[in-house]
Each structure stands twice: as C-alpha cells, then as structure tokens.
C-alpha cells in the first residue's frame, strides 16, 4: 500500500454503530460484494451507489460501536475505501478494519475539521491528515510497522500467506 492516500470525504457523526453500517437482516450474507449494496442503507442511502474506490470516511466518536460483526468493515472494504478516520473507534471494529486491509486512523476531534465532499490527504507512516479543500492539518502517531505490514499486504489473509509461504 502507498502510505499516501488522497480521496473525497464522506462525513458521519458520533456513535455510528455496526447496525447502522449494515442492518442485522443481512448478516447471513457472506459475499462482500453483495454486502456493499446494503451498506448504510438507512443512514446514508446514496453512499452505496456513489462512493468511489479511494474515498475516505471521516467519522466522530466511537465509530463502529455495537455488535462486533465483521460484515460492517467488510462491506466498507469491498467499496475500496482509502481509509476511515474517526475521533475514536470501537475496539473490535478497528481491528477488523486493519485485518481486512482497510486503514483505520484515530485522530481526536478530526470530525470537526471536515465537511462532506472535502478532499483529504493522509500519510500513514508520517502521521498527518490534511483537509486539502480547507487547508487544515491534524497529526497522529504514525501507524506502527506491524499494522503497516498488514495494510501493505492488503489484509491479514495475505500477510499470513506470506508468513506461511503459501502466497
């Protein structure tokens, strides 16, 4: 993965839970490409149709809270999002994002720096998020090597393949 990401921003507020990301009735769907059609169906209906690979979600507090279902980040990863940046994340959701190869970055108060449609630039190993549109910048501790390796590999599956020599 390129450490430098750039994309159009979608904004979400505080406490967006995994139920809002993908409703409970879709939990028996396993195919991520099917799941992505239903992502945020009630919360942000145009998202599943209009979101482009490389787009970036900027969310508020405790993003991905609620039930620890992996369907939610799997649906986001299937869209090919560049990253999700949030004031804070729910723990298992954060891990699931990383393990699926989706960069998750915690930056306190980042939500207030962005409006929907702004362009964001993120550098994972240098540790900054820029709002290119509004000319603002925030910093975060650069992601540790272990996490960058998982993201680089495109997720934990590929990372393990490399380790096991099955790649």
């Amino acid at each position: 993965m390129n450490s430098l990401l750039r994309g159009k921003v979608w904004c979400l507020d505080d406490q967006v839970d995994t139920d809002q990301l993908i409703a409970g009735k879709y939990l028996t769907i396993i195919d991520p490409n099917e799941l992505r059609k239903h992502v945020m169906e009630d919360l942000l209906p145009e998202f599943s149709k209009k979101a482009q690979p490389g787009d970036i979600i900027v969310a508020g507090e405790n993003f991905g809270c609620g039930s620890s279902r992996e369907h939610a980040p799997a649906a986001l990863a299937a869209i090919g999002l560049g990253a999700v940046v949030a004031n804070s994340f729910a723990r298992i959701f954060y891990r699931n994002c990383i393990n699926l190869g989706l960069a998750a970055i915690e930056v306190p108060d980042i939500r207030s720096h962005f409006r929907a449609g702004d362009i964001a630039e993120i550098h994972l190993s240098e540790g900054y998020v820029k709002n290119v549109t509004q000319g603002k910048e925030a910093r975060f501790p650069p992601l540790p090597t272990h996490i960058l390796e998982i993201l680089d590999a495109g997720g934990l599956v590929n990372k393990v393949r490399k380790e096991l020599g099955t790649a």
Binding site: E70, I92, R95, N96, N99, H146, I147, L156, V157, L164
Partner: peptide, 18 residues
C-alpha cells in the same frame, strides 16, 4: 479478548495474534 473472524482464521492458521 474478543476478536473478529478474519483474525480467528489467522489464529487457527498460526496460533498467534497481534
């Protein structure tokens, strides 16, 4: 600690977790 299914798969394969 609670983990997601992809990391459960990695544990089944390697016995390790980050």
């Amino acid at each position: 600690v609670g983990i997601g299914p992809t990391e459960f798969a990695a544990v089944l394969a390697t016995g390790k977790i980050w």
